[in-house]
């Protein structure tokens, strides 16, 4: 098990290097730091001195890969590639445009993000699996047919509509919850109810339909026919055999998103004014804060790769036929 984990983690390293190279190419090779400076400074204030100052303040005044003016190791370390890309691996993300330390800001913002994402994830899973179970149990009836139609309709609605409509209805018309904002400690729940609810509802369409297909696939298998042939009641077969076995692909399928929950949700957080990582990302994109976007890309891929590893582990845990090979 341990050797397997180490191997998996080592396998993740080249992928992270690839991610790093892509972001580096996007941010520094396609456009030079001079172009970025011009964009940030605006048309009026562009002078060679202003650009040089902007670059020096952010450490972009070094050569890209190789610094011939430095000595020894410095030829490699005193470069943009080393200071901006390699340092990401040790969790040093540098400073944002407003001068704050990105790493600390991220740690501060993880809490609010999780406070929204985790309940949404757990509740959403419970609700959609239960609904899918119901549709699959009453398969080929009017309930199933109209349930699927409703699912297709719900997944055709833009995610923005759920947020804008929900916010308008519950916060403005009914005044049940505050429109946006965030509180400290337990007081925060009033701000969390609506975003979580909207997140759950927005996910119902696609997930329920997908889980229903998984259930139906399981119902068609041979062991189910055998169980029925033994004389077990349909209810017993469904809840004791089908449910258990169908949960395996469902649960292993969602494991991959668990680490990414830290990243928060872009839209929900920005609409509800939650100070999490999602709204941090949106603000950075809109302010064209390249350092923050670069850091978020890196963190996002680390979390995704972690999710892949967790998925593999979960497969081996639930299915004894798969060994740690």
């Amino acid at each position: 098990m341990f050797a397997y984990l180490v191997r998996r983690l080592l396998y993740a390293l080249p992928i992270l290097i690839g991610v790093n190279l892509i972001t580096f190419a996007l941010f520094f090779v396609v456009n030079t730091p001079d172009d970025m400076a011009r964009l940030q400074l605006g048309v009026k204030r562009v002078t060679p001195e202003a650009i040089a100052e902007w670059k020096a303040a952010r450490g972009y005044d070094q050569p890209l890969f190789f610094n011939p003016e430095a000595r020894g190791l410095g030829t490699v370390t005193q470069t943009i590639f080393f200071s901006k890309s390699v340092r990401l691996f040790v969790g040093d993300f540098g400073r944002a445009e407003d001068g704050r330390d990105i790493t600390r800001e991220m740690l501060n913002r993880m809490g609010p993000s999780l406070a929204i994402a985790l309940p949404t994830f757990v509740l959403g899973l419970l609700v959609t699996v239960s609904l899918a179970l119901m549709l699959a149990f009453f398969r080929a009836t009017a309930l199933d047919l109209w349930g699927v139609v409703l699912c297709v309709a719900m997944m055709s609605v833009s995610g923005l509509f759920y947020i804008i409509g929900g916010q308008y209805l519950f916060a403005k018309v009914f005044r049940l919850v505050p429109i946006s904002g965030y509180g400290v400690g337990l007081d925060a729940w009033r701000f969390l109810v609506l975003p979580v609810l909207i997140g759950v509802v927005a996910g119902i369409g696609a997930s329920t339909r997908w889980y229903r297909t998984i259930f139906l696939e399981e119902v068609g298998k041979d062991y189910v026919r055998t169980a029925r042939a033994k004389g077990l009641s349909e209810t017993w077969v469904f809840f004791r055999h089908v449910l258990k076995n169908a949960l395996i692909p469902i649960l292993t399928g969602v494991v991959v998103v668990i680490p990414s929950l830290f990243m928060g949700s872009l839209l929900t957080e920005s609409f509800f004014g939650i100070p999490g990582l999602g709204s941090y990302t949106i603000d950075a994109i809109q302010a064209q804060d390249f350092a923050v976007v670069r850091a978020m890309v890196f963190v996002g891929s680390v979390l995704y790769i972690l999710g892949l590893i967790l998925t593999d582990i979960s497969y081996t845990l639930v299915d004894p036929r798969i060994r740690f090979a």
């Binding site: 996007l26 976007v293 978020m296 996002g300």
Partner: peptide, 15 residues
């Protein structure tokens, strides 16, 4: 795949 798609798109569009 491992880069969150919104961020990859954002990075590319910014550039």
């Amino acid at each position: 795949n491992s880069i969150p798609s919104v961020l990859l798109i954002a990075a590319a569009v910014l550039m």
